[in-house]
Simulated scan of single mutants.
Amino acid sequence: MKDRIKILSVGPYGERRIGGVQYVTNMILNSFLKEKYEFIVLDTTIPIFYHEWRIFRFFLTLQFAARLIFILFRKRPHIMHIHSSNVASFLEKGFLILLCKLFSSTKIILHLHGSRFEFLLKNKPWFRKMVKMVFTMTDAIIILSENFKQLLTNLVGTYNYIIIPHGVDKRLYDETIVERLNDGKVRLSFIGLIGERKGCYELGVAFKKLVAEHNIKNLHLEMVGREEEPGELEAIKNFYERLGILPYVTFYGLKVGHEKIKILKQSDIFVLPSRHDSFGIVNLEAMAAGLPVISTRQGAIPEYLIDGENGFLFEIGDVEALTEKIRILYNNQELREKMGLKNKKKIATFYSFDQILKKYDALYQQVHTGKNQAELNTPFI
């Protein structure tokens, strides 16, 4: 049997504290690719302790570095696929990339998931220099959207950027049968980190306007997710209580798998009013469940969510626009269903796991062999 290509996958894993990066790493490791390639995992999940005591984060990075060097010498991987999210993560992963270059001939794929790069790239020359230094050590850079590619090209320069968006396990949504609740309520769902960054305060104000000014009494808000920072969940609940909307809201906490799909399939409208988001993977999940989506013009979101066609877009912090978009869908069940059907079709055509995994397969082959793969040139519309 021919030896398989060894791929060292560096990033967070598992379903605890699951986010966009974990969603991707789990997707790859649980797919047909695990039969084709030999995956070696370096789990860089950040325990809650280090979120609360960030001063000690440096020591955790040193642990990751020691484990990386051990793997490089012991396992000798052909490719390192390393995932980076926020700015702190990028600095950490940049250090690991430098070590990989110093101690091995392993080829490097950097996977950028972060949502807060734009400000630093535009305003901090030191950060641009850091990004260029890291980019020059890579063989390929995975980004999530054409929008981000243009931003990086303009501010950092031209490198081997490969656009691979997130995907959804369409079969899981198709196989999950859920009975609709016939209680007269119209359900508005939100899934994500509970806090300011995901627009939870604006969502509360918009909901208040719908209840108070438009006299809508049968609208219910379903909030799914954990708090992003310690104390944010309690702060949001207190804010909603002061607004007088807490009786109309259910906080479910973190839900994954069939539990999350059930909530989506029992909903009528999905909303993600993020202030910062690189992709908004939960929008794709809502689309797979057949829901119309309301979201902000952030990152890749306008590339798959067309305003007025399969959902609505609005500007960050524009509570009036958010309120109006929810009101339009609340009042028009036919429009909700029409947009939902378009979303299911779009997921099946462009964003299913099967489509996205072919891209990763082609990229691994291209980086390993140096031969261009046609699959990577297929556009996402």
Rank of each mutant, 00 (worst) to 15 (best):
K2G: 12
R4H: 07
K6G: 04
S9V: 15
V10R: 06
G11A: 09
E15V: 15
Y23C: 13
Y23I: 15
T25D: 11
M27E: 10
L29Q: 13
F32S: 15
Y37T: 09
I40V: 12
V41N: 12
D43S: 00
T44M: 01
I46S: 11
P47V: 02
Y50F: 12
H51M: 09
E52K: 15
R54T: 15
I55L: 13
F59S: 04
L62V: 13
L62M: 14
L62G: 07
F64M: 03
F70L: 10
F70K: 15
L72Y: 00
F73S: 12
F73Q: 13
R74G: 05
R74M: 12
R76S: 10
R76E: 14
H78V: 11
H78Q: 15
H83F: 04
S84G: 06
F95T: 01
L96N: 05
C100H: 02
L102N: 03
S104Q: 00
I109R: 05
H113N: 06
G114F: 05
S115F: 03
S115H: 09
N123F: 00
K129H: 14
K129S: 15
V131H: 03
T136L: 13
T138S: 03
A140N: 00
A140P: 00
I142L: 07
S145V: 04
N147V: 11
Q150M: 08
G167K: 06
G167Q: 02
G167I: 02
K170D: 11
L172N: 11
N182K: 14
S189P: 10
I191M: 12
C200H: 03
E202V: 02
V205G: 07
K208A: 14
L210A: 04
V211N: 13
N215E: 15
I216M: 10
L219N: 01
L219E: 01
L221N: 06
L221D: 06
R226Y: 14
E228K: 15
E228Y: 15
G231E: 08
F239K: 08
F239S: 05
E241V: 11
L243N: 01
L246Y: 03
F251G: 10
L254Q: 14
K260M: 13
K262M: 04
K262G: 06
K265N: 09
S267Y: 01
D268G: 01
L272Q: 05
P273D: 04
F279C: 10
G280D: 02
I281K: 00
N283I: 08
M287D: 05
A289H: 13
P292I: 05
V293T: 08
S295D: 06
S295K: 05
I301C: 06
P302I: 07
E303N: 07
E303I: 08
L305T: 05
L305S: 04
G311E: 05
L313N: 01
F314V: 01
A321I: 04
A321N: 07
K325Y: 08
R327K: 15
Y330I: 11
Y330T: 11
N331G: 13
E334P: 00
M339K: 04
M339E: 04
M339A: 04
G340S: 07
K345S: 10
K346T: 02
T349S: 08
F350K: 00
S352W: 05
S352C: 08
F353H: 13
K358M: 12
K359P: 02
Q365C: 07
A374F: 11
L376W: 04
N377R: 09
